[in-house]
């Protein structure tokens, strides 16, 4: 178990270093950072001096080590656009994105899993057929279209919910939250649905197919022969056996939700990291882009690690097999 965690940690570090290389090359080779930092009338001597001061004349490996060292401490330099420290820019935007992603993920799980269970248990029921059809729409409609349609219906036509921004937020230390005000919560609804809808349909379809599979297994048939109640069979025995793949996908999707909140944040003018990233791209604000890249990679890796650990909680076969490597059958 400990060896497994260590191995996964080493793998995670390797992944982050690789992403670090990509981010570093962004810095080095996407345009000349000096050009972006100084005005047009800066003399060549001043430029050379700045270049020397920033260490841009050092050999690339040395610069890379320095870059990684700084990144590990959260120092990504100054934004070209606002001249603020990148770290602070990101930390300011992080709560908005994380809260949005969390709500979207909860929405997707809380609605998607029961829908999947139902349509897996009663695949021929008309409700299941309707859910299948609706999920097809959810999978195939692009996010921005869903967002715009929701705005049209609930903000423009019905005037029930705000169409942009975070509404009122409360600052708790350095963290601004939507959860403590009514307006903040209202503002969360439409973006969360928009962001979570794709994941919802994905989870629903996954749970459905896993349930269909599990319900055919011998141990479910045997559980019936033992006279267990339907509830014990469906939720105690069947659903738990569908959890390993569902946790995997849900975990990966949580990373995806955070990373691809960009579109939703743009549609709803949500002041999160995604919006920051889009603005940075427009200004070729490379320090921000590099930091964003590394942060997303870090979140993905961290979530994956948690997912791997969750397997152990769910499946006893893994707990005893880690050392041996192979299952005893």
């Amino acid at each position: 178990m400990l060896a497994f965690i260590l191995r996964r940690l080493l793998q995670s570090i390797a992944v982050l270093l690789t992403v670090g290389i990509v981010a570093f090359f962004l810095f080095r080779y996407v345009g000349d950072p000096i050009n972006a930092m100084v005005g047009q009338d800066t003399s060549m001597e001043e430029r050379a001096e700045l270049r020397e001061k920033l260490g841009l004349n050092d050999p690339a490996p040395l610069q890379f080590v320095r870059f990684i060292g700084n990144a590990a401490q959260g120092k990504f330099g100054l934004s070209y656009r606002t001249s603020e420290p990148v770290g602070r820019l990101i930390v300011e935007r992080l709560p908005a994105t994380l809260e949005l992603a969390l709500c979207a993920a909860i929405f997707a799980m809380v609605v998607g899993v029961p829908m999947g269970v139902y349509s897996g248990l009663y695949p021929r029921h008309w409700i299941s057929r309707v859910m299948q059809a609706v999920s097809l729409i959810g999978v195939s409609l692009p996010t921005f279209l869903i967002g715009i349609l929701l705005i049209l219906v609930f903000a423009v036509m019905l005037r029930l919910l705000p169409s942009f921004g975070r509404g009122d937020t409360v600052a708790l230390g350095g963290w601004t939250t939507n959860f403590l005000t009514v307006k903040g919560l209202q503002a969360l609804i439409l973006p969360s649905i928009t962001l979570g809808l794709f994941q919802l349909t994905l989870i629903m379809r996954l749970v459905r197919s896993e349930m269909l599979e599990v319900m055919r297994t011998d141990y479910i048939k045997f559980a019936r022969a033992r006279g267990l109640s339907d509830r014990a069979i469906n939720f105690g025995h069947a659903l738990k056996n569908t959890l390993v793949p569902v946790i995997t996908i849900a975990g990966l999707q949580l990373g995806a939700i955070i990373a691809f909140a960009i579109v939703t944040e743009t549609v709803f003018a949500w002041p999160g990291m995604g919006q920051l990233f889009i603005q940075s791209v427009q200004f070729a604000d490379i320090p921000v882009m590099a930091a964003y890249l590394l942060l997303i990679a870090f979140l993905f890796v961290a979530i994956n690690l948690v997912v791997d650990l969750l397997y152990f909680a769910v499946d006893p076969r893994l707990r005893s097999n880690v050392g041996a490597g192979k299952g005893a059958h």
Binding site: D218, F222, G227, L228, S229, K240, N241, D315
Partner: peptide, 25 residues
Amino acid sequence: MRRIRGAKIGAIFQDPLTSLNPLYT
């Protein structure tokens, strides 16, 4: 019928390897 199964009529199936739920003791 569910209350009869297990209580009055027990059943044993062919494959003991797959008759038990792997996730519970």
